[in-house]
Design a protein around this nucleic acid. Structure first.
Length: 475
RNA sequence: GGCGCUGUAGCCAAGUGGUAAGGCAGAGGUCUGCAAAACCUCCACCACCGGUUCAAGUCCGGUCAGCGCCUCCA
């Protein structure tokens, strides 16, 4: 708990256990959630690239939890269920699958284990019982609270001292707690509360923080390596996780990583502020890889400012990279054999720069800069004349393995145009016909007709470029 | 009020004390029927004021501005 950048040494050589606080599935994910998911996905991919076997656990919070800390506050899932006239679990599943499809679009690797809070009630109750047995928790009126006063370490992650904290919350709940800062491990279910389970303290439901302790310890074991999440969860959520785990006698996460927030007009994007754009909306308007590029082009610990202008920049920047890759792969089949030693050296240097950047706290902006360096070198070389196949392959490898495998910006293998896979042959054939027709116009110097054709294609989002080697198109 | 973070060109964004990565946009040029792409060239007194140092965007103090957490939030 040094609150600074430290050297990473895993518990078990060659293996890393990671836990990431996942979504509460009661509404669609927005761009801010994507920043977190992409950040930790890249960290996971980078660790894999450096040879670690990673077990990546991220939870699904499908217990509602309260909108605020008062007893009469409605559970978020229940509120949503009422609004949409669905069963609470129907709400959870609806938004869980929605989340999964968003993450797939963004090329996020699937978790190794994706446990649900409602599937681990037993484990949570067991942990609470351990805490009571050790004198760090107490039952009160059907609920159970963590006794903050009994655990001097509380506050060590976020650097807070108990006495600095504002006196908390509502009158009615304060009477149940020994100290206003005590947090709920188990809550008594009021009549009408649909999500409810039997427990030694009566019918109720688990507190918000306990699920992450129970599930991370269950699947990653004591003293697991990395725990991640949004900076806004540092306090109280992560602080509570640490306290309740360690007070129960279990060594908890050894490294904590927090991603910073995504802002819009300088303010945090959040559900409660209502200033969010859902991923669903963005995915309809933009190439998912452009969204990913935007998120990866700022450091995970930095704030990412999101705006239309930032998006435009990301779109252009991403295109520059992907076009260079396509150009290399286009040249590859007809490239002369052999290598260009000077270029090979540059490629190796860019590769090293990329890897060094990741080794230093996953500096993705710096890593991308290395990719741009490579791009400039390769474009310049291909502009000058044919480049040897060995050299082209070396460059291609960097794009696909690092840009693709680690940053997740390209697929691991070669792709063609962005047309849907099953329609690609048809589209290609049609485009060939159209371009041939346009070439005929051009050869006959009927430029008006040729330009008319190009205009028409532009309107449907197809760009045509005339190159030395003939016309090219892209979507 | 408590804890903490940030202020780098029109925009986005790195930066380990030695005189500012990268991208977008913009300007000029090469190529081209035109356009686009690509290539070449250009484009920052690092919020302000003090201090430490041979040397500070980078360390220390202060000022101003913005933001986050302390209540659900990635």
């Amino acid at each position: 708990m040094q609150r600074q950048k430290v050297r990473f040494v895993p518990t078990t050589a060659g293996r890393v256990g990671m836990y990431l606080c996942g979504p509460t599935v009661y509404s669609d994910a927005h761009l801010g959630h994507a920043k977190k998911e992409v950040a930790f996905d890249v960290i996971r991919r980078a660790l894999m690239h450096f040879g670690y076997v990673v077990r990546y656990v991220t939870n699904v919070t499908d217990v509602g939890h309260l909108q605020n800390d008062s007893d009469d506050g409605e559970d978020k899932l229940l509120a949503r269920a009422r609004l949409e006239q669905l069963e609470p679990m129907e709400v959870a599943d609806k938004y869980f699958w929605s989340f999964v499809s968003d993450m797939d679009a963004l090329n996020i690797l699937k978790p190794s284990i994706n446990p649900r809070a409602t599937g681990h009630i037993t484990e949570q109750i067991a942990l609470i019982e351990e805490l009571i047995a050790r004198g760090h928790a107490y039952a009160s009126n059907g609920s159970v609270y963590f006794d903050v006063r009994s655990w001097p370490d509380y506050g060590k992650l976020s650097g807070r001292k108990l006495d600095d904290q504002a006196e908390g919350t509502r009158e009615d709940i304060r009477t149940e707690k020994r100290d206003p800062r005590d947090f709920a491990l188990w809550k008594r279910a009021e009549a009408g509360h649909i999500m409810r389970w039997e427990s030694p303290w009566g019918v109720g439901f688990p507190g918000w923080h306990i699920e992450c302790s129970a599930m991370s310890l269950k699947y990653l074991g004591e003293g697991f390596d990395i725990h991640g999440g949004g900076l806004d969860l540092q306090f109280p959520h992560h602080e509570a996780e640490i306290a309740q785990s360690e007070a129960a006698g279990h060594a908890f996460a050894r490294y904590w990583m927090h991603n910073n927030m995504l802002t819009i007009n300088g303010e945090k994007m959040s559900k409660s502020k209502g200033n969010f754009t859902t991923l669903k909306d963005l995915l309809m308007q933009h190439d998912p890889m452009v969204i990913r590029y935007l998120l990866v082009s700022s450091h995970y610990r930095s704030i990412t400012e999101f705006s239309d202008a930032a998006f435009e920049g990301a779109r252009s920047g991403y295109r520059r990279l992907s076009e260079a890759l396509h150009e290399i792969e286009r040249h590859l089949p007809t490239a002369p054999s052999g290598n260009n030693a000077a270029l090979d050296a540059n490629i190796a240097a860019h590769r090293k720069a990329f890897e060094d950047a990741l080794r230093d706290d996953f500096n993705t902006p710096k890593a991308i800069a290395a990719l741009f360096g490579l791009t400039t070198d390769m474009n310049a070389a291909m502009n000058r004349g044919p480049v040897g196949a060995g050299t082209l392959n070396a460059a291609r490898e960097v794009y696909r393995t690092l840009g693709g495998g680690v940053l997740g910006l390209f697929s691991a293998s070669s792709g063609t145009h962005s047309a849907q896979a099953d329609e690609a042959p048809v589209v290609d054939a049609l485009m060939e016909l159209v371009l041939q027709a346009r070439q005929n116009y051009r050869l006959n110097k009927q430029y008006a007709q040729a330009d008319e054709l190009r205009q028409t294609l532009t309107r449907v989002g197809v760009t045509v470029e005339d190159t030395k080697d003939g016309p090219r198109w892209r979507k």
